[in-house]
Design a protein around this nucleic acid. Structure first.
Lengths: 252, 252
DNA sequence: GTTGACCCTCACGCAACGGCAGGCGGGAGC
DNA sequence: GCTCCCGCCTGCCGTTGCGTGAGGGTCAAC
């Protein structure tokens, strides 16, 4: 089978100009030309273009792609295998970024200040020794910052008051259930965990059960989040965490 | 807290030049300068930079990022929420690409020719009406193409012969087990499924149990792959598929 | 035979920085 | 006080990966 530039462009989802460019730099030269000088691409060219597109999607510059494709010891199967590995690596990276975003969302929801390192460590290559030196400092002056952070969000004043009221109401009720001695996997505790999830979803961001259990783990693992709940009632962080897990399992 | 360009650059994993550039175009201007003209970034600047980095990672051009960040109705929480959605979308796209790579790997392993549409449909925006018109043609002339595809791989001739021999040996034995009337979830069938997986891993690409069950589904869903196994023994495609699933479950 | 879609080759333009030159600032050690 | 080195400053030109015409040939159809 032979294809013209336009056909290849449509098939591969690139522009004709891109194919011209690849021809110019010798990355993908069509296997032949017609008498009139039209480029003719065959199936082998398409296969090469497929590899190019994947490497491009993975962020490789064109000259490196050329080196990889034309270099020795690289049969087509090895390329696919390599691309498979790179892709799964990218997915892992994106999942870490998602987790970092969830952390940032939850921190904002509670008015907790993130350290600069936490903001950026997901992007990799950050300096490890810059981490410990400010570990103390981040526990000071939180209150003023919290207020300013809250003001930054563009909710109306009434919205904020309503949200605050709902939050406090929920806090009172969950403290009462805990005081009553009901276990964390009781229907009452799970119901309040579910309400917690819906409260987040309504006011801040869509909180799936998966995200919710992720938050639950964070509440016991990160002292700043723990402190937020311990202030309501000592032991509440762990209690809530367990209730959230129980609720997620029962709803699944 | 105030930071110099160099400190911010290190923290955020960007170059000083990039920060200069963002300042030049007004995307991220430091909140102040020292008497000597040094740029001074504060925590709000860092927060903005965090958002910028995420949007950049998601492929947005700088002018669009500026429009998004400075536009109305976009509080910080909304940005995080949006980035969360975009990221999960990207992950889904990459997972489709992984699946497409697995298809391509398996097709190559069996010497099956993929249609141009199949090569590129994962990249999206391909023409739907270009799909049906060649549906017949892809069933002709497969043998010659298969041979040429096989030669393309850079294995030595002996490698190929050994691989072929192992494959045929496996084919004989799985046919024998099937003929014996042993069910697909019997120990013998599962053992051959496991061997099938290791054979792929050794010769072609690391084949996890997850990938393996994906292949199993493909063997019954895609007639070209089905035909490959049916030629060994009628009913083998379904039999093998079931054995692979049973094997994966028992090893998990 | 002419119309419209498609192809060709220049050629300039643009985003998002990289990298270097040439010069100032600052703190620490002599 | 002087020097040394590192970090900061402002230009300014270079590069990658194309986008976007300009100006002109080609091909299948009507």
């Amino acid at each position: 089978m032979a294809y013209t530039v336009g056909q290849v462009a449509k098939l591969a989802g690139v522009t004709v100009r891109t194919l011209h460019h690849y021809d110019e730099i010798g990355l993908l030269s069509p296997s032949g030309r017609t008498a009139a000088g039209y480029r003719r691409y065959d199936d082998a060219d398409l296969e090469r273009l497929q590899l190019i597109r994947y490497y491009r999607e993975l962020g490789f510059p064109l000259d490196e792609i050329a080196a990889i494709l034309d270099g020795p010891g690289a049969d087509p199967a090895a390329h696919l295998r390599r691309q498979h590995e790179l892709l799964t690596g990218q997915i892992g990276k994106l999942q870490e970024m998602v987790a970092a975003i969830e952390l940032a969302m939850e921190a904002k929801r509670m008015g907790i200040q993130l350290t600069p390192e936490e903001r950026f460590e997901v992007f990799g290559d950050f300096d490890p020794d810059a981490h410990a030196e400010e570990a103390e400092q981040r526990w000071g002056g939180t209150d003023a910052y919290r207020e300013s952070t809250r003001r930054a969000a563009r909710y109306s004043k009434e919205d904020w008051l309503r949200n605050k009221a709902e939050n406090e109401d929920w806090g009172r009720r969950v403290a009462a259930v805990m005081d009553s001695g009901a276990p964390a996997d009781s229907a009452a505790a799970m119901e309040l965990a579910e309400e917690h999830r819906q409260l987040i979803s309504r006011w801040f961001y869509e909180c799936s059960y998966e995200i919710h259990t992720g938050l639950a783990d964070m509440y016991v693992a990160d002292p700043r989040f723990t402190a937020y709940y311990e202030k309501i009632r000592p032991g509440l962080a762990a209690y809530l965490s367990e209730a959230i897990h129980a609720n997620a399992i029962s709803r699944a």
